[in-house]
Design a protein around this nucleic acid. Structure first.
Lengths: 242, 242
DNA sequence: TTAGAAAATTGGTACGACCCAATTATCTGA
DNA sequence: TCAGATAATTGGGTCGTACCAATTTTCTAA
């Protein structure tokens, strides 16, 4: 893959951790690793820093570097490695097959709120894309997305019936790696109940947020109303300022 | 505060950004900053990397470093600077006064699930702490927490009636900076409806997770059932591997 | 005038040196 | 024997250099 020194170190260390090569949960010290991999200690530190940020390891000055016990027990929760933020990917859980049913696809002028979030002006237009997401034919969420036409002038209903993020990666070679999300819960509306086969007392999870391209351009505003049984939003937070 | 070079640079850059000293959203290049602050370019890079991680700025190779427009428009969402992960702090929103009502406080043997999550054995015991959280006297969430007694043997019902995290910071000088959280939605139970004044069709948000001490020790398993109108979980994600 | 080449700009990666700070291990002397 | 002092270990921060890669600007030649 990438031919970066620190990534190679990371990759090998992860492999060793997964292989259980550190039964006492303790990694070799940085100077030894530097020597073993024949790279500078700076590069070792970088690799370890990223892994610590991801919650795989933790470091204690004067004491050593240790594997997070929970990483071994519950790897699924950690690390979005190699993935993007798209739902097509993150919902490929339990071997279920994702599906998309296009409900609506049109171009509308950007509302003031959209103008603010997507950094647009009065003259700008956006696609409005309303889709029903399925897992094994079961409807699980209603997704309404807004994308500026000036960012993707070539968007077609064909593309929109599949994964937009994968299209971006495969065809235009840009990836979506940043997002703001707000997660909330609400009683289901009649439309929710109809489309998601919900009983009146059953709620929906609401995930709304903004997705950004690599270069910081706000790319999409999205609002997702999720069947509560399928809604599980996992996060790992680390407030250490690096 | 901390007398670290890169933190000083960060602090000053944030101030300048907030003061609107970069009207074109463009920061000086790294070499100029290095020269201006009389610090090495390495330290400037470190400061900028942290700020990029926090979503305040974004960088484009060959082009420059720019302020994230959304940072200026919506600062509230960004940056937990100076805060910890405690709820007492993060719920001090809109000037409302937080309150805590202790519902239950006892010591129980660790269940197998707790043993797994908190890295305990059969012999270990945990505090079970059930509390009702209030905002301006209004009940907003039911919180059930489990903390190993061997981590905090001195825990009293007095401490538990306040902020445990603040107690840890002020008295024991350790802070809680890492957490795994899973956010979901559920129909309210009868107990939820009673304690949170919910109608039968109104749901709760469920936030459950594990909090860690600085050194990686799993410290608390927590399960929070939140009045849906008060449940808003914000996250900023950046999947760039450093 | 303008398209393409060349140069300058700007952030990215890597190295290695130097010292500091927290922790752990070892030694020393009563 | 063992408590306290001392040394060794281990991660943290900073500096400065060198070179690379993407982008933008400038120059050059048709």
């Amino acid at each position: 893959m990438a031919d970066l020194v620190y990534k190679n170190v990371m990759q090998d260390l992860k492999r060793r951790i997964n292989d259980g090569q550190y039964p006492d949960k303790r990694l070799p010290d940085e100077r030894s690793l530097s020597d073993a991999y024949q790279v500078s200690r700076s590069s070792v530190k970088r690799a370890l820093n990223v892994m610590a940020q991801q919650g795989i390891i933790f470091k204690k000055r004067g004491s050593g570097t240790f594997v997070n016990p929970l990483y071994l027990k519950n790897k699924a929760v950690f690390s979005y490695e190699g993935r993007n933020l798209g739902l097509t990917d993150s919902m490929r859980v339990d071997g279920m097959k994702p599906g998309i049913k296009l409900l609506d696809f049109q171009v509308i002028p950007a509302t003031p709120e959209l103008q603010q979030d997507l950094f647009l002006t009065d003259d700008d237009f956006v696609y409005q894309i309303k889709r029903l997401r399925l897992l094994d034919e079961q409807p699980v969420m209603i997704e309404t997305g807004f994308i500026p036409i000036k960012i993707m002038p070539e968007l077609s209903s064909n593309v929109v019936s599949g994964s937009i993020f994968n299209y971006l990666e495969d065809i235009k070679h840009v990836s979506v790696t940043k997002s703001f999300m707000t997660v909330a819960a609400e009683p289901s509306t009649e439309q929710d109940q109809e489309l998601l086969s919900l009983k009146p007392n059953e709620p929906v999870g609401v995930m709304s947020g903004i997705f950004f391209l690599d270069d910081g351009t706000p790319f999409e505003v999205s609002n997702m109303r999720v069947h509560y049984q399928y809604m599980k939003y996992n996060t790992f937070m680390d407030l250490d300022a690096d």
